[in-house]
Design a protein around this nucleic acid. Sequence first.
DNA 1: GTAGGGTTAG
Length: 606
Amino acid sequence: MRKPPSQNILTTLELACISRQNKRSCFHSQPQFVQRLQGLKDLSSVLSSHSKLLKSGSLEESFSTNQLINAYVRFQEIENAHQLFDEMSEPNVVSWTSLMAGYVDAGCPGMALWLFTKMARCTVLPNAFTFSTIINACSVLADVNAGKKVHAQVEVYGYQCNLVVCCSLIDMYGKSNSLDAARRVFDSMIERNVVSWTSMVTGYTQNAQGYEALELFKVFTGISSNRPNHYMLASIVNACASLGRLAYGKATHAAVIKQKYETNDVIACALVDMYAKCGCIGYSLKVFRRNCRPSVIPYTCMIIGAAKHGLGILSLELFQEMLMRKIAPNRITFVGVLYACSHSGLVDEGLKHLNTMYKKHGVLPDAMHYNCVVDMLGRTGRLDEAYRLAKSIEVDQNQGALLWGALLSASRLHGRVDIAAEASNWLMESKQQVAAAYVTMSNTYAVAGTWDDVNSTRCEMKRAGVKKEPGCSWVEIKDAVFVFYAGDVSSCARGSKVLILLKELERKMKKRGYVAGSNGLVFVDVEEEAKEEIVSLHSERLALGFSLLSMPKGVTIRIMKNLRVCRDCHEAFKLISDIVHRDFVVRDVNRFHHFAHGSCSCCDFW
DNA sequence: GTAGGGTTAG
């Protein structure tokens, strides 16, 4: 027997109030009712309609109740929606699906999955709407196993050719790092639209496969009827950012302007990020300033972009500016602010922000923020404080890998073997960044001059069969990208000239005494022979710059990545520029930022 | 009642 309609949702006072307000109006027909419910601007109007339906007895009809469920869902009143659902004698597929979608919107995708399993025990059959909703729930949960089970049911119920269901599946597999499965769905589609193409392109972009994203985009644009919209363009800008493809990124920016999407907040944000990652922070700022009323995310993009370019002061000014404009910072904004302080040596400023982020802005610091602070303290040599902070934070394995990795890196920089040993042990025992842990530990011993330990660490690494993937860098010339691996000087077309240049650099560095600031080489009682070895390694790091020599004559080369260089490397780049000047134009060499406290891209290269 | 886009530490 059906339960009587509950009045819990509406208090007696509300009912009395609503009754007085709406005596003169009533619903005459279903279309009128739907129109009315969909146009409601606030919760009290929904409650009012609910009251009228109760009185008229219309809640007996599932159609009316479903409309009301959706109205509650729109106002994030999921409990009211669920109560209404519970009161239905025979909820139909729309009732079930509406409630599931409501739970996904309310950030409870697990409840949606629970409802889906409950629905399977009833006689109501799922349809395409149900499947796309529940696949979306799996996507939000990043639960690929649940997603696969739903996918199997999609096949059983015969919805595998439905366009929207396929888009949901592509998105779900993409967000669960199962790109092959996403691609299989995409390839199986008989009919595709811009959403399905965008879902697949975004899947590649979100899984760091920018090249595949751009390749698929080329196929998309090769079909005459296809036109990229702002969703697609944002994804492509993102792919360009991850690849450092400035030329392609600019071309996409042109398409954005042409199609008048430049004021779109999401696109603007992607462009700000893309230009920053391609080394053009000035363009980022220009794009950012074209937006008169940026929200928290564009501000955060700009703060992080400036921070990565060593413009910590600019980051902090932007942060102050957004506060003045009453824009509330979020947890990622604070990651950017702390990152800015860390990379510009603004330690006290950084600590101040850490201590006030919750008190003033209600943002609770988490492992990510503490990691920035540990890194900040470590870089400036406040190793003991960094160590105490790291020990006091509870972290999971992934967070710990970053935290102890940062501490290990700082210990190497300052020759703190004791802390480095504990950090590398943590990483090895947790099976996180094992190769980096061995190499950095070995380098820390080298900085401290304990060469027996250097050898034993290297031997242990070899015995354990651990290999370090070589680092790489790249330059973009016209529309082509050239990748260079660390130490791979011999593959350069003009390798012999590179080697001569290496020797020349070594000579110059020796003349300088090898001693640099806090970022360069630090020698503490190191034997002469070992010094030579380190200097040689340090010079090899500069292969990054020497790779320029393999380029054809007369081309303009822009060094990609956000290159931060210490004084030694800066000198070396200037030297390279002098030597190869007749053959090459190496732009921006004099514009590299010297970092008093930040890390050097060249030094970090190994 | 259903699908796609932006910022995240080393």
